[in-house]
Computed example of a mutant assay.
Amino acid sequence: MASAFMPPALGQSISETIIPDVKTTLNLFGMHLRKVSGAWNYPIHAHPQYEFNYVLEGEQRMIVNNRSYTQRAGDLVLLRPGDSHSSQSGNGQPFTYFCIHFDIDDKLLISLLSRLNHMLFTAESPIAHKLTPPLSKLVDISTTIHGDITMSQRMMLQSAVFDLFGQLWEAFSIEANLHASATYEKVELAHQIRSRLQGLVYQQFKHDIQEDRTLGVDDIAAELGISSSHCYRVFRQVFGLSPREFLSQQMLHEAKILLDDLRLPVSHISALLGYRDIAHFSRQFKRWQGQSPREYRESGPLHN
Results as ranks from 00 to 15, higher is better:
69 Y>D: 01
70 T>P: 03
73 A>D: 10
73 A>V: 12
75 D>H: 06
75 D>Q: 08
76 L>S: 01
76 L>Q: 05
79 L>D: 02
81 P>E: 07
82 G>N: 08
83 D>S: 08
84 S>W: 09
86 S>M: 10
87 S>Q: 09
87 S>N: 08
89 S>M: 12
90 G>L: 07
92 G>F: 10
94 P>S: 06
97 Y>D: 02
97 Y>N: 09
99 C>Y: 00
100 I>A: 01
100 I>H: 01
102 F>V: 00
103 D>K: 04
104 I>D: 03
105 D>N: 15
107 K>N: 06
108 L>Y: 04
109 L>E: 01
109 L>Q: 09
111 S>A: 10
111 S>V: 06
111 S>T: 10
112 L>T: 08
113 L>C: 08
116 L>F: 06
117 N>P: 09
121 F>K: 04
121 F>W: 13
122 T>A: 08
122 T>W: 00
123 A>I: 14
124 E>T: 13
126 P>W: 02
128 A>E: 02
128 A>Q: 07
128 A>H: 02
129 H>S: 03
132 T>M: 09
133 P>D: 11
135 L>Q: 09
135 L>C: 08
136 S>F: 11
137 K>G: 06
138 L>A: 02
138 L>D: 01
139 V>T: 10
139 V>K: 09
141 I>C: 01
144 T>D: 12
145 I>Y: 02
145 I>V: 15
146 H>M: 09
147 G>W: 01
147 G>F: 00
147 G>V: 06
148 D>M: 03
149 I>A: 10
150 T>Q: 06
150 T>F: 06
151 M>I: 13
151 M>R: 12
151 M>Y: 04
152 S>Q: 11
152 S>P: 03
152 S>L: 08
154 R>H: 13
155 M>V: 15
158 Q>H: 15
158 Q>D: 15
159 S>V: 07
159 S>E: 15
161 V>D: 09
162 F>Y: 13
162 F>K: 04
163 D>R: 05
165 F>I: 07
167 Q>M: 04
168 L>Q: 11
169 W>Y: 14
170 E>D: 14
170 E>W: 11
170 E>Q: 14
170 E>F: 13
171 A>C: 08
171 A>P: 10
172 F>A: 02
173 S>M: 03
173 S>V: 02
174 I>Q: 14
174 I>R: 14
175 E>L: 04
175 E>W: 08
176 A>G: 15
176 A>I: 05
178 L>H: 15
